[in-house]
C-alpha cells in the first residue's frame, strides 16, 4: 500500500466534515465537524511529513492542534453565551445581528 491512501482518507474525512458543517444546525455538532476537518488536515500533514522525510509537517500539525484547542475554547464560550441569550444552540436562530 502506498501512503497516498492516507491522503485519500484525509480528503474524504475533510469532505464529510465540510458537508456536516453545511447540513447540521446544532452549533455544537457544527463545531465537531470543524474539528473533523482540522483532524483530516492534520492527518494529511503527518503523511506529508513521512513522505518528505522531515518533521516540519508534524510541527504544522502540532500547531494546528494548539490553534484548534484555542478555537474550541473560544467557540464553545460563544455557543454558551448565545445559548444564554437565545435559549437555543441552533445556528439558524442566530440569523440576526440583534437579539
Amino acid at each position: 500500500m502506498n501512503p497516498v491512501n492516507y491522503l485519500y482518507l484525509a480528503a474524504l474525512l475533510f469532505t464529510i466534515g465540510a458537508a456536516g458543517v453545511l447540513i447540521r444546525r446544532n452549533a455544537i455538532v457544527v463545531f465537531m465537524c470543524i474539528e473533523l476537518m482540522l483532524n483530516a488536515c492534520n492527518l494529511a500533514f503527518v503523511v506529508f511529513a513521512r513522505m518528505h522525510g522531515n518533521l516540519d509537517g508534524q510541527i504544522i500539525a502540532f500547531f494546528t492542534m494548539v490553534v484548534a484547542a484555542a478555537e474550541v475554547v473560544v467557540g464553545l464560550a460563544i455557543i454558551v453565551s448565545i445559548f444564554r441569550t437565545r435559549h437555543t444552540a441552533s445556528v439558524d436562530d442566530a440569523s440576526l445581528m440583534k437579539l
Partner: peptide
C-alpha cells in the same frame, strides 16, 4: 480534492527513519 491528489506524482516516499 481526490482528483488533485490522484494527479500529483506521489509514488515514492522518504519515510521518517532519518528524521526520527
Amino acid at each position: 480534492l481526490i482528483a488533485g491528489i490522484g494527479n500529483a506524482s506521489l509514488r515514492h516516499f522518504d519515510g521518517l527513519g532519518q528524521a526520527n
